[in-house]
């Protein structure tokens, strides 16, 4: 859901823009710690990955399909700061090149789909890892929980922004109910895809899962002596 122009009034759009710019500035500083001079190519390729991943539609029910938002997935895979940069760049390019999401609402979109999904998703993920054992199913479960919470959280923040700066007099309870209700469902799809994707990366390159770095050992390549002759 990319918010178009005119959905949120001008002052609140500007305020959200300031929040988004601040968040991206913090992320820029943090990403240099996560990636140093590899920031541009690696964050750029991860942004291209998020962009492509959003094109992968998965069937939900009865002919409808959804696609990934990717904030939590990116945060777990490459770290929260780099993830914020990737999401901000993806959203900016979608607004500029594809007219998806209003230019005046770019701040709102980055705040909701970049900052909130990454911060909530990564926060929940780390919290869950603290109480769960250091095993691959546990990390997968933590990714599931993180993505599950991140999508309704983004919807809740959207509702909040809408309550302050919405341009139509829809009772806020109705908006909150509809938005959060629908996004709990979307969140289940997001959680399923996020956790399975994290799990499949963990199986091959656990060192590339930033959120679980050092938690799991790299799988060893084992060779077994052939038993018997001719094997």
């Amino acid at each position: 859901m990319h918010v178009p122009d005119g959905f949120i009034n001008a002052p609140v759009s500007v305020a959200a823009g300031v929040v988004a710019a601040g968040g991206v500035a913090v992320a820029l500083r943090g990403a240099r710690r996560e990636l140093d001079d590899r920031t541009a190519p690696l964050a750029g390729l991860t942004a291209a990955f998020v962009f492509a991943a959003q094109m992968l539609n998965f069937p939900v029910a009865a002919g409808t399909s959804g696609h990934l938002l990717g904030g939590t997935l990116a945060a777990i895979l490459v770290g929260p700061y780099t993830a914020v940069l990737c999401m901000a760049v993806v959203l900016g390019m979608q607004a500029l090149l594809f007219a998806d999401g209003g230019l005046s609402a770019l701040g709102v979109n980055i705040t909701i789909m970049g900052l909130v999904t990454v911060a909530v998703g990564y926060g929940v993920f780390r919290l869950l890892l603290r109480v769960l054992p250091a095993t691959r199913p546990a990390v997968t479960g933590a990714a599931f929980g993180a993505a599950l919470v991140s999508v309704p959280a983004a919807a809740a923040v959207f509702t909040l922004i809408y309550a302050i700066g919405g341009t139509a007099e829809v009772p806020i309870g109705t908006v909150a109910g509809a938005m959060i209700g629908v996004h709990v469902l979307i969140g289940i799809g997001e959680a399923l895809i996020t956790s399975l994707t994290v799990s499949s990366v963990l199986a091959v390159r656990p060192d590339l899962v930033h959120g679980a770095r050092g938690l799991l050992r790299k799988p060893e390549l084992r060779t077994r002596a052939a038993s018997g002759a001719g094997a």
């Binding site: 991860t46 990934l68 994707t197």
Partner: peptide, 12 residues
């Protein structure tokens, strides 16, 4: 999801 995981590895 396994496709996505492979796609991430290839991209990264």
């Amino acid at each position: 999801a396994r496709s996505l995981g492979a796609l991430f590895l290839r991209s990264y």
